[in-house]
Nucleic acid binder design. Structure first.
Lengths: 124, 124, 124, 124
DNA sequence: GTGGTCTAGACCACT
DNA sequence: GTGGTCTAGACCACC
């Protein structure tokens, strides 16, 4: 599973987002050990230094912390993970509304469309 | 303002999407004349051949049609424009739910969040 | 004037401290343009990437901000500069007391010594 | 715990300073026997020859003297130890003022800051 | 083996 | 010429 990387944003920023998603979605559990920098870099197909930069940024948000000789670990602060999760959700929602407005839908129209969309799927 | 182009999808496909958005959002009105291929290509920062391919694709969907000697025009079939608009909206909604699921939100949670989000903005 | 760099702390950390000192001491004025990354790196005798890392860290503290194509500038927030100045002073004081304690001087003895020291210099 | 050694001053000079500090601070008592050169060198993570040079230098200051077959001993001249202690303190104070001046603090400002600093700690 | 740091050299977008 | 990003490859300390 090669990671999906664009060229319109810095790679390290996309790596950050990807790893954040893996943490908040529960793929990596709180307190769990992350794969090594080199391993993650190989998985993503990027230079280890680029992955290092992404992980260092995550450390500044205290989402992960490094244990100098034994590896990197996800924070055990589940509240913080929840906060980041909600923040990312808010960003997704904001971006979604932006796209819909570009298509010419006002917020209430968008809300109506999405509500109908969920109801339809209920019937499936 | 160069167009935002990725490298993970064919350029011409991104051009199609961009022009479609401009049409359904009303930036280009039904029946209106489009700028020349050269002009559009320059705006997008792509080779005119690539833009040509995108426009040809749009013609196959009957969204635009070329008038031999006088240029390309947007269709006057507003119903068709509406259909495309709704289709693009459905794609945005689908993609949005996909992202939210990656974050760990079920559809009903997402619906609840987005509903709250709109209410909050009403109060502003 | 080659910069004094140790090997017992990361070079980039020493660069940060050096530049901070130049800012709070007034060598670089608020709002002033910094020399380019390449120039600063040459002055310090380090790789431009290392200097880049140091400057990026300073940007995270909002002490400097970069104007993508025209260079880096010192913040115009003189209050923030004062705050950093006081913080660095507190660190110096703390470190000084630590050294004096290693020599066997309690805080009050140290205070007495330093007071006498200033008086003596007054007479010079 | 390896000793903290820089590369901007000769290693042997840093060893001298370290041992001097241990003597004046009372970690090594007057008249006490020093560990062997080999042991000290191992502790500091340096070549025994380098440690030997440092100890010889200390002997020239009469701070330690060697007893042919039984090892090296700290001087029993407590007055001399006091003098060295005061000299090292003066150096620390001088260096401290230098750093504060680099930050832009005059001596009187520094004195005021450090006085306040001690008072604050009294209240804790 | 781990994370951390540093260098050298390259390319990009912007203006 | 500017800042920003990325790669390749190296060395270090720690255990």
């Amino acid at each position: 599973m090669p990671w999906p990387l664009n060229s319109d944003r810095p790679i390290y920023a996309q790596l950050i987002e990807h790893i954040q998603t893996d943490i908040v979605s529960g793929k990596y559990q709180a307190g769990e050990k992350l794969p090594s920098v080199r391993e993650l870099a190989a998985d993503a197909g990027v230079n280890p230094n680029t992955m290092q930069k992404a992980l260092s940024e995550l450390e500044r948000n205290n989402l992960v912390h490094s244990q100098r000789t034994s590896g990197r670990f996800i924070t055990e602060d589940v509240t913080m993970i929840q906060d980041i999760k909600n923040q990312l959700a808010r960003e997704q929602i904001s971006e979604f509304f932006t796209h819909m407005k570009q298509l010419g839908f006002q917020e209430k129209e968008t809300l109506q469309l999405i509500t109908e969309s969920v109801k339809e799927e209920d019937h499936e």
